[in-house]
Amino acid sequence: LWTIAHYQRISADPHADWTPHVKIFAGKAAPGYVVAKDIIRLINDVAHVVNSDPITRDKLRVVFPPNYSVTMAEHLIPAADLSEQISTAGMEASGTGNMKFALNGALTIGTLDGANVEIREHVGPDNFFLFGLTADEVAARREVPAHSRAAIEASPALQGVLHAIASGAFSPDEPGRYASLVDLLWSSDWFLVASDFDAYDAAQQQVDRAYRDPNAWQKMAIANIARIGYFSSDRAVREYMTEIWNAGSAR
């Protein structure tokens, strides 16, 4: 959704001094997970439009490599500048991927979810792009009637994005292809995407400002690598041995 918003902004003012972005998505969907399939298809439809647009393609690219795997990750993770760990707080969706990105120097933009919390504690708040509701705030927001509609109506950028999707801007051969996905965001939005959208947008602007200062960015990346050693497998194994297995070290 943010990628579409950014595409719209560049299209509206192509001569502005934009920070170039290459957005890399990857994922797989279970056979019966219709929403996930729609999201994957939408990403690829957006990629087709954005990457074909001569006005924006030097400033924004969207890539969805097929069959993402560990072997592919070995190439992508060391090359990444930014690690997107944007799961809804309290869902514990962040796994070890965020640690691998951080160990390889990518800065993190993320919520206070899962291992993101510990990563931010170790690398320092100044080296982490935080956004979004906390787990407690997520639980409270879900109790608010029509929270998704209220969030969308408060965000002109998100309204523009959803209108473009619903009107078939990215699926001209089938304008109603994503009607159910758009309706889901307006009507329920369990993952509070709409509620976190503007905060994520603001965090991405912070990322752009930081990236335009190479010395500052490199300093943050080096601090990230230097402080992320806590997440090494050696420490994890020792912790399992002493706290879970009650086993001593081999002599």
Rank of each mutant, 00 (worst) to 15 (best):
residue 222 I to P: 01
residue 183 D to K: 12
residue 211 Y to N: 04
residue 243 E to G: 03
residue 174 E to I: 01
residue 182 V to Q: 07
residue 234 D to N: 09
residue 216 A to L: 12
residue 211 Y to V: 07
residue 153 E to S: 02
residue 243 E to Q: 12
residue 217 W to S: 02
residue 112 L to S: 00
residue 143 E to T: 15
residue 133 L to M: 06
residue 223 A to L: 09
residue 162 L to E: 02
residue 236 A to L: 00
residue 190 W to Y: 11
residue 246 N to F: 10
residue 153 E to F: 00
residue 200 Y to I: 08
residue 208 D to S: 08
residue 247 A to R: 14
residue 207 V to C: 06
residue 193 V to T: 15
residue 174 E to G: 10
residue 181 L to A: 07
residue 132 G to I: 00
residue 136 D to F: 03
residue 196 D to I: 08
residue 198 D to P: 04
residue 180 S to L: 13
residue 132 G to S: 04
residue 219 K to R: 13
residue 205 Q to T: 11
residue 223 A to W: 05
residue 214 P to F: 04
residue 121 E to T: 05
residue 165 I to Y: 09
residue 209 R to W: 06
residue 207 V to G: 03
residue 198 D to N: 05
residue 124 G to W: 02
residue 167 S to Q: 04
residue 191 F to L: 11
residue 220 M to L: 06
residue 166 A to F: 07
residue 129 F to G: 02
residue 148 S to F: 13
residue 176 G to H: 11
residue 192 L to T: 00
residue 115 A to I: 11
residue 246 N to M: 02
residue 124 G to Y: 00
residue 119 I to W: 01
residue 127 N to G: 12
residue 179 A to H: 13
residue 240 Y to W: 06
residue 227 R to T: 01
residue 120 R to C: 02
residue 201 D to N: 14
residue 150 A to T: 11
residue 138 V to S: 11
residue 151 A to I: 11
residue 160 G to W: 05
residue 217 W to E: 00
residue 123 V to C: 00
residue 190 W to L: 09
residue 206 Q to V: 05
residue 210 A to C: 13
residue 148 S to Q: 14
residue 238 R to K: 12
residue 180 S to Q: 15
residue 145 P to H: 05
residue 248 G to M: 09
residue 226 A to T: 14
residue 238 R to H: 09
residue 233 S to Q: 15
residue 209 R to L: 14
residue 216 A to M: 06
residue 139 A to Y: 11
residue 150 A to F: 05
residue 223 A to V: 08
residue 151 A to F: 11
residue 122 H to K: 12
residue 194 A to R: 02
residue 226 A to S: 15
residue 188 S to W: 12
residue 144 V to D: 14
residue 215 N to R: 14
residue 248 G to Q: 10
residue 234 D to F: 13
residue 131 F to H: 08
residue 204 Q to G: 07
residue 235 R to A: 05
residue 117 V to F: 14
residue 148 S to H: 15
residue 154 A to H: 09
residue 202 A to P: 07
residue 167 S to E: 03
residue 115 A to C: 06
residue 154 A to T: 09
residue 159 Q to R: 14
residue 210 A to P: 12
residue 170 F to S: 06
residue 222 I to Y: 10
residue 166 A to G: 08
residue 156 P to D: 08
residue 145 P to T: 01
residue 229 G to D: 06
residue 155 S to F: 02
residue 211 Y to P: 01
residue 229 G to C: 10
residue 177 R to T: 12
residue 186 W to Y: 15
residue 235 R to S: 03
residue 165 I to W: 02
residue 225 I to W: 00
residue 190 W to E: 09
residue 192 L to K: 06
residue 182 V to K: 04
residue 180 S to H: 15
residue 119 I to A: 03
